[in-house]
């Protein structure tokens, strides 16, 4: 077994929010991320799923130190990123990149595609000549499926799918070790989405990338990930290998999520059992006691309100945070 490339321990991101009055209210911590741990080996893709407000984007950004962590450790090749100074962090960032959700908004409209893709090279490979940079940029463009002749065009001249390819080229040009993809295909049309997913998977294999793939789309996460983590209200509900999580989910929330994904087959869609979650997502300012999911959980008991579920699970590598994970699955 190889050493983990990335080891995240008990990562918390809390925002102080003034509640009550404008001047006299007290600060309450908004727990966007509350004690998440996982590790990642080289060449592994971790899918992170959950609904809006579960902390999945916060997690991606906190891992890259784009957001300050309140506590916890992000060990990158044995060094704790949360303790590095600006200079050390900049050096580490050479190997860590991010692909954002909104393909157009994440590109500077006043820079050409070529300049956007070349920017990481100019930041980190100062010794390269302009000719070398140009050659590398054109190389990368061809690799992500962009015509190198489009190097001098501006982002608005590209379609959404092409803009996302530019974003991917920018993330990949330094040959990073870790790439965080934050909903990279959510804004794309169905036929373009498949192309970009394939591109990411090809690059991942060819460059032996470690990837954190954040998405609310459970079908795509299943397709692209080796392991999958389910978040709810800033906490991990379940983490397991892709096959275990999708074939035998143990957490009621995972089961409900999977049952809610529409299947493009009318016969199966009519026959499928439905688990309808009642109630609303609780406010992260005032999360439920015990298990955060209990207010919407069909299995909740008084124990769930009193005791926060410990980490347990059926196998090594399959962890569930639920008191009732041994109970039969809610739906097929």
């Amino acid at each position: 077994m190889s050493e983990p490339l990335l080891d995240v321990r008990d990562l918390k991101v809390h925002y102080p929010v003034r509640t009550g009055g404008f001047l006299h209210g007290a600060y309450t911590p908004l727990k966007a991320l509350d004690g998440v741990s996982f590790d990642l080996k080289a060449g592994e893709t971790l899918g992170i799923v959950g609904e809006s407000g579960c902390g999945k984007s916060t997690l991606g950004r906190a891992v890259l130190q784009l957001l300050p962590a309140t506590s916890g450790a992000v060990a990158w090749l044995g060094r704790n990123l949360t303790e590095l100074d600006t200079k050390g962090l900049k050096a580490a960032r050479e190997h860590m990149q991010i692909v954002f959700q909104d393909p157009l908004a994440s590109l500077d409209p006043r820079m050409t595609a070529g300049d956007i893709i070349a920017e990481p090279l100019r930041n980190f490979r100062g010794s390269l000549s302009n000719t070398e940079i140009k050659a590398k940029v054109k190389d990368m463009m061809a690799r992500v499926g962009l015509h190198p002749a489009m190097v001098n065009r501006y982002p608005h001249e590209f379609s959404g799918g092409q803009c996302q390819r530019i974003g991917i080229a920018r993330a990949m040009i330094l040959g990073p070790k870790l790439v965080v993809c934050d909903e990279p295909v959510s804004a794309l049309d169905v036929s373009i989405r498949a192309q970009v997913v394939n591109l990411l998977m090809e690059l991942q294999r060819a460059m032996n990338l470690t990837m954190i793939f954040i998405s609310h789309d459970l079908s795509i996460v299943r397709h692209i990930s080796h392991r999958v983590m389910v978040l709810y209200l800033g906490k991990t509900m379940e983490i397991a290998s892709r096959d275990a999580l999708y074939a035998a989910p143990r957490h009621p929330y995972t089961q409900a999520l999977l049952a809610a994904v529409p299947v493009p087959d009318p016969v199966k869609a009519r026959a499928r059992a439905k688990i309808v979650l009642t109630g609303e997502l609780p406010s992260p300012l005032n999360p439920p006691s015990g298990c955060v999911f209990r207010t919407r959980c069909p299995r909740a008991t008084s124990l769930c309100a009193e005791v926060e579920p410990p980490r347990e699970g059926p196998d090594a590598g399959h962890d569930v945070w639920c008191h009732h994970w041994r109970a039969p699955t809610l739906a097929p």
């Binding site: 498949a194 997913v197 394939n198 998977m201 459970l218 397709h223 299947v263 087959d265």
Partner: peptide, 19 residues
Amino acid sequence: CTPRLDDPPTVLLETIPGQ
């Protein structure tokens, strides 16, 4: 080209070329 939960995952998705 739509990945679906009721099929076993494949290595690459089918695609519609072009845009």
